[in-house]
């Protein structure tokens, strides 16, 4: 396998995991703030469902420029909102 491609995919995977984690946290901090405190188990079960979906979704995104920096940029608004 092309070493450059492997490194790019590894970077993308690492970025996806970090972004998915931050996005999930931000999303649920936001949701619990608006909904007046959701049940913790419900939030955790939704977070566990969302996390792998976001990881796979971000890894599936086309394009060479979807590097970790893009994911971090995507996650920042969530943190601000929360």
């Amino acid at each position: 396998m092309n070493g450059g491609l492997w490194k790019r995919w590894l970077g993308r995977f690492g970025g996806s995991v970090a972004c998915a984690y931050v996005c999930t946290l931000g999303l649920f901090s936001l949701a619990s703030g608006h909904a007046g405190g959701l049940d913790a188990t419900l939030v955790q079960s939704l977070a566990i469902a969302v996390l792998p979906l976001v990881i796979v979704g971000l890894c599936a995104l086309p394009g060479r420029r979807s590097g970790p920096s893009v994911f971090v940029a995507l996650a920042v608004p969530f943190l601000h909102l929360s």
């Binding site: 999930t24 946290l25 649920f28 619990s32 188990t41 939030v43 955790q44 079960s45 977070a47 566990i48």
Partner: peptide, 18 residues
């Protein structure tokens, strides 16, 4: 995988819940 991950979710998301 899902139910197991939810059972131990507080390890991954300690800031959510008790």
């Amino acid at each position: 995988a899902y139910t197991g991950a939810v059972i131990h979710a507080p390890r991954l998301f300690p800031m959510i819940g008790a």
